Every structure is written in C-alpha cells, then in structure tokens.
Simulated assay, not measured.
Amino acid sequence: MKTKTWTLTRRAALSLAAGAMALSAAATMPGGAAVAQDDPLKVGFVYVGPVGDHGWTYQHDKGRQAVVEKFGDAVKTTYVESVPEGADAERVINQLAQSGHDLIFTTSFGFMNPTVKVAKRYPDVMFEHATGYKRADNVSTYAGRFYEGRYPIGVMAGRLTESDTIGYIAPFPIPEVVRGINAFTKGLHSVNPDASVKIIYVNSWYDPGKEREAAETLVAQGADILVQHTDSAAPMQLAEEKGLIAFGQASDMSQFGPNAQATAIVDDWSDYYIDRVQAVMDGTWESQDTWGGLNSGMVQLSDFGPKVPEDVAKEATQIVKDIESGDLVIFEGPIKDNAGEVRIAEGEAASEEDLLSMDWYIEGIDAQLPKN
C-alpha cells in the first residue's frame, strides 16, 4: 500500500571529518557525473546521519537525488553527511553558504540555531530547515506529521499482537517523538485496550548497537512486535531473526525484514525538494512553514508484509483514508494524560501549539516521560 504523509526533528552524529570528506566528494552528481553547465543552481544538503542509515538521512538523500534527476545539469548538489548538531553544524552550513550555494537544506532539528545564525550572514542565500520553528526572510521550515502514520500502525499492532506487549524504541523525549508514541498508543488501544507499550529511549537517532540492545531487552520483556522512531535497521533485523513483527521507520525496511515488516512509515521529501528548487529558479521562493500530513504525500505507508492478514490491511487502508479526509482526527477530545488530567476537552481537537509542544503521555501508558 502506498499512501501519503510528511516528519519532525533529528538526528545525532558520527564525525565532522566524515562530513568534510562527503562535502568534497559530493561536488559531483550521484554516480560520479560532473556538472557541466554554466551557472547551475548550487543546492546544498546537511545531514545528521550517514546516507546509508536506511532511515531519516537515507530518505533525505533520495530527495536530493530526485532533484538531480528532475533538473539535470541545471543544478549542482552537494551534501555533507554525519554532521554533529551544534558548533560543527554551523561551520558546515557557513562553508556551504560561503562557497556559493544558492539554496541550503539543513535536515535536523539540532541544526536550527546554526541555520538561523548563518542565514543572517548571507541574506541572499535561501535556507530550508527540517523540523524546526525559527524562520526569517531567507529561512523556511518544513516537517511532516509522522504521528498520522503511527495511528494506523498502532491499530495494526493491536490486531497482530499475541502477547499484548509492544516494544517501542525511541530516540529522545521530544514532542515529535512523544506525539508519535501517543498516536500509536491511541490507535493500539482503539482495538486492543489490554495491550501495553513498553518504551526504551536510546538517546540517539542512529546507533545500531543501542537500537539492537533495546530491541533485545523489549523482546525479553515479552514484546512480540517492535516499533521504532530510530533510524537504523537493527530492530527490524532482530525481528526477522526471531520471527517477530516490526514496523519500519522513515524508509521501507523490508529488505532487512522481508517476513518481519508489517509496513513502514516512509518519509518522501522528493516533491517538496523539487518544488523549492523550482521556486528558487523561478524567483518565487518565499519563507514559509510546511507541515504535511498523510494527504500531502510527504509520508506514506509502504506495502503490507506477508504476516498482515487481508482484513487488517483493509482496516489500516481505510483508517489512512479517514485521516486524509479529516473524518478521523487523532487527537480529538476527551483525552487525558496518564496522570488522569484532561489535556484535550471533549468536543475539541488538539491545536497546532498543543501538538508541537506535547510533553505528556496519554492515558494507558504506564511510564513516566523522561526529562529531555
């Protein structure tokens, strides 16, 4: 099944040295073909993880490749991978701006302040920051409503679990992640109120070792389904090894779990990147904020796996359609937190501010939210 959505916040790093190597290497197009055109539009991408993470960064780089495929020699793209959030990011972003890039995409939440700082120095350069909230005349923001994809996979998990225990591997206790956990749990409990969600935070966006260790711990605690908001395929691989069910994150991970993957929440940045590059070429680029949902195409559900019965697939497909049409509003009251306090009143829906600042677990999650 290929449906549609668009995501928030990112990632943690490997080494600036590796990023610098990618910067010099990426002066050629994918496949090594050099750009051969007078004054092509120079477009830069800054990644928090490696392009081979098969998750968040992998999907952003597929978006970059779509730009190259669309515009050919009219663009020259550069990417820097595995850039740590913080001072190192500012240096990399500044280097791209200083070296004549016309448009720069910075693809992690922790790149927000560095992006804004550099943008002040280069008012003629356009910047696009993924998952942030700070904008300027030459800084746009964009993200996806990944939580919309997590509600239907919660319903699927509720139908597919036999142990009534779901393991959830999370990166950091930030609103994007908490929103996703709450949406998943809401979907889960809509069909299986007896199921429980066990959550382990690994304090990293991409760390295969930590992710696998967390997955093993959750399985030892009785989980027969694994869900992740982290970027490596390690949990999917473990599920495949143990004959369990798992849901992919950011990209279709079925190659790592052909039998295990039920579906994956896939981030698709290609159309957005192409549109924003076209806007710069046309001279129509303006600062804006984009937060797309299932009806936008920014995030999609991948094809259902072999362990998903037809009735469960049909139910999930209908739920996606209902979310796309607005017939199903995920965070519609009454909703209480897990301390019993009403957070969203009956007859009301969560505001954008409520969603973007969500720092509480919904009723039914038997855990305390760690302090970020």
Rank of each mutant, 00 (worst) to 15 (best):
P30V: 00
G44F: 10
A34D: 08
G31S: 01
G52Q: 07
M29P: 00
Q37P: 02
P50W: 01
G52C: 02
Q37G: 13
Y47M: 11
L41Y: 03
G31E: 00
G31M: 01
D39W: 01
Y47W: 03
L41V: 15
V48A: 15
G52A: 09
A34K: 14
H54L: 12
T28N: 09
D39T: 09
V51K: 10
Q37F: 10
V46E: 06
V46H: 05
F45V: 13
A27M: 03
V51Y: 08
H54M: 14
P40G: 02
G32D: 10
A36L: 07
G32C: 09
D53C: 06
G49C: 11
V43R: 07
H54F: 15
V43F: 09
V48P: 08
V51S: 09
F45Q: 12
A33P: 07
V48Y: 09
G44T: 11
G31D: 00
G44N: 12
P40Y: 06
H54K: 15
G32V: 02
W56R: 10
G52R: 04
A34V: 13
D38C: 02
L41Q: 04
M29R: 13
G32M: 11
P50A: 12
A36S: 11
Q37L: 11
D53P: 07
G49S: 14
G44K: 09
D53E: 06
V46M: 07
V46R: 06
A27Y: 01
F45D: 13
G32E: 12
T28G: 03
D39V: 03
V51W: 03
D53K: 06
A34R: 10
D38Q: 10
T28I: 08
V48W: 04
G52V: 04
A27N: 05
A27W: 00
G49K: 06
A33K: 15
H54N: 15
A34E: 12
V43S: 11
Q37M: 12
Q37W: 08
M29Q: 13
V43C: 13
L41P: 02
V35I: 14
G52T: 11
V48D: 12
H54W: 13
V46F: 06
F45A: 13
Q37Y: 11
V48G: 15
G55L: 04
L41E: 02
T28P: 00
P30E: 01
G32T: 03
M29G: 12
